[in-house]
Nucleic acid binder design. Structure first.
Lengths: 221, 221
DNA sequence: CAATATTAAATTGTATACAATATTAAATAT
DNA sequence: ATATTTAATATTGTATACAATTTAATATTG
């Protein structure tokens, strides 16, 4: 089998996505097709197509004849996104939990172990965010709900920059580690309702923390 | 203010979308860029961009170098989509119901009146489907949850062709009219939990009806 | 004949060029 | 000077042309 050949559009989408998530491109910034094309050594066609994809992911606003901008999420919008995540992730967990094998649970615990180590080591960078996502995904892995999972992944990406910002500025959610332990316990004992309720609180709790920071930032500007 | 100028991409997207929803393009059919471009008197660029948009809407699958096809939904996928709709629409209703004014409820009742008339008149066409959607949207109109509403609209579009097919082949969901009345009553009395639970049942009931038909069709082929 | 390699055709991906629209700067009028 | 037109510039939208890739058809080999 040959090497997976990525199209320029895909590469450009990845590049711009990372720029937005990392904060190099800030919310509201215009995304000029010609400038991006030159910087990435492609024509404007793949840039346009990448922008359309990113719009579908909610990272970009694309208005006809006006051009694209990085989406600027208001506190209300962040609120709604996190509520949606709570709803959808709980639904995923509800379907997954009964199918989680002891093996799955051990793998989840292993990820949790790495996550706690990274946190203890003071990693405020990407690693903790990635491991956190991995842990959640592992718990949802047996849900057999591909479309719901895709939605969750999308909203996860969309909130990623705010989570990253929170990690950077506030050191991350303090209570998260022990909450993960509790959640894993509920999964082990197959206590579906307790697990789902707790997960919802876990997510909306993170939301409140992040929103508080955002409000503070909006005021200081 | 000038006339709203639609881009060719938007026009092409609308044209292809309607072809898919109406069944003119069937699930699994390949969507050849050159053929569509010629038929719609545009170049392949707006066709490609339209296909990307439709992929985001879930109506089209777009694989690099392989081209686009109209999405083929398995019974499982339809199952999941309707479950998602039930979840998300109930969430919308939950937020909207407390804000619904007597005026809103009267408007909803008026739509319901039209819907019942259209059904009685034997309209098995677009009208009933449109009015049905209108009624639901009215009930969700005060939710103040734009992103959730957008999701619901997307999944509504995605299931539209199956609902249309069901109306055509089975005359629509028989119990829907009286269910709408019941739902409206719960909204009037602001019985949030009863309304949301009933709405979920309303949607999953429709799902079961449609899935039954689909299974029958798959067998007969 | 089946299986594989090779070529030809069809189809998608992308660069370039130009057209349409929006934004900014300059000019005119009040 | 401020407001309103008009012209110039910047930016997006789309057609055309060509390159890359996949698919189909043909040839080759065991």
């Amino acid at each position: 089998m040959g090497i997976e050949h990525k199209t320029r559009t895909q590469l450009v989408a990845e590049a711009i996505r990372e720029k937005i998530l990392s904060g190099e491109i800030k919310a509201g910034d215009p995304l000029r097709q010609a400038a991006l094309a030159e910087e990435l050594n492609v024509s404007r066609i793949p840039v346009r197509e990448a922008l359309l994809q990113l719009e579908a992911e909610g990272l970009v606003n694309f208005e006809a004849h006006k051009g694209a901008t990085a989406t600027m999420l208001s506190a209300d919008q962040i609120d709604e996104i996190f509520d949606l995540r709570a709803l959808l992730e709980a639904e995923l967990l509800r379907h997954s939990i009964v199918n989680l094998t002891p093996r799955d649970l051990l793998e989840a615990e292993a990820i949790l172990y790495d996550l706690e180590e990274a946190t203890a080591a003071g990693d405020t960078q990407l690693a903790t965010g990635k491991l956190n996502a991995e842990f959640h995904v592992k718990l949802y892995s047996k849900a057999n709900r591909p479309q719901t999972a895709e939605l969750v992944a999308m909203y996860g990406k969309n909130s990623e920059r705010y989570v990253r910002m929170h990690i950077l500025l506030a050191g991350g959610i303090k209570t998260a580690p022990e909450e993960h332990r509790t959640l894993l316990e509920f999964c082990k004992t197959k206590d579906v309702n307790a697990a789902c309720d707790f997960l919802k609180k876990h997510i909306t709790g993170a939301k409140d923390d992040i929103k508080q920071l955002l409000v503070k930032m909006e005021q200081s500007q």
